[in-house]
Nucleic acid binder design. Sequence first.
DNA 1: CGAAATATTGAGCCTTATCAATTTAAGTGG
DNA 2: CCACTTAAATTGATAAGGCTCAATATTTCG
Lengths: 206, 206
Amino acid sequence: MTLVRCEVDEVIYHNQEQAQYWYRVVTGAARKCSLMMDGRRQIVDFLLPDDVFGFGADDDLHHFSTEVVSTGTTIARYPRHAAEQLAESDPQVSRWIRQQAFRSISRLQARTLILGHTSALARVSAFLLEWMDRCNQPNGTTICLPMSRYDIADYLVMAVETVSRVLTLLRTQHIIVFRSTRRLSIRDRRALELAMVGTEDLLIAN
Amino acid sequence: MTLVRCEVDEVIYHNQEQAQYWYRVVTGAARKCSLMMDGRRQIVDFLLPDDVFGFGADDDLHHFSTEVVSTGTTIARYPRHAAEQLAESDPQVSRWIRQQAFRSISRLQARTLILGHTSALARVSAFLLEWMDRCNQPNGTTICLPMSRYDIADYLVMAVETVSRVLTLLRTQHIIVFRSTRRLSIRDRRALELAMVGTEDLLIAN
DNA sequence: CGAAATATTGAGCCTTATCAATTTAAGTGG
DNA sequence: CCACTTAAATTGATAAGGCTCAATATTTCG
């Protein structure tokens, strides 16, 4: 296992690259993304500390590229062949890998559910709630968004401008408060949950 | 392991139900879906023969419900505890489960990429191409859609009417030909690939 | 054959993408 | 530390695409 300290926007592995390692985020954040044929970028998953990624290629190639999102990100790297052989022999390791795969599935399904919302308001609200849960700040409602608005837009499959607009709407409704551009507090969780359901009337009403 | 023969629309397991089994499609097709808070339904995954599902719950509850799509669907059922213990002891089984989990991840990511397209035309085109690959008819381009248009709409997160409209557009452009409502041939694969990229001009031009 | 479910087509409105401009933040070098 | 440059984020106006509501057509099934 090797620890690697990374720069922002550094590419951990490219799409179509030989899958030589499995990876785990130690500190910081990363994005798994895909460049689509029409030139747009799509972010399939955000990776946070303890998230494992880079496995699961049916052939031996990565099907996405993964890039570092925030400064001070550290990645642990496991030689794939060794890890796989270890998995064959050691039930402990095997179980751990299986559980990580299941976690990965959970994340993907969670994102899928977010994309299930048709309105921009609902998607952004769902995203904020998901992110709050993932950050898992003990009691506080202040969350840090390490990624840019562009990243969020590409994750939610919408235009940056729309992300921005929804965020300002939520701000003017005092549902969220910005500490800085990328740090915010959720003031009214209930309102966000309602926004997910699509009753934007409530936003105007309050 | 138990083999179960199912009726159409039969529920294999409900959301929030105790996860007692792992499942595998033997013949036919199923849909994994989630009822959203706003009443809309979302289909997270379609399951085809040899697809394994129902595993990966972090707690012991299913987080979706899974229903049968087509007549003559047969499902294999594996007691979860026994399967897990077997996985602990038998490297073969362990490896198999790991690979199935990876396959599941691949499917989810594929769907994610489909939802990455913004236009209805692109989504439906991507769906048809994905489905053609999954059906894996040796040489033929005729594919069978076991699910209803509503299912497709809920999979692609759009209105049924839009699905219908796109399909008729593709038909009038002779890109696809309907053998029956739920069977069609792809006449111009290239055009579908172009449609994914968003050049709908080409549709009008030809 | 008739009834119910499924699928298609039409019209109008609403949301969001797009293009364009401005403001704010973040680096950079003197 | 401050001017300067560049990137990131916000705001505005417009137009297009898709959703909604409504009606019709087709298929399925009893």
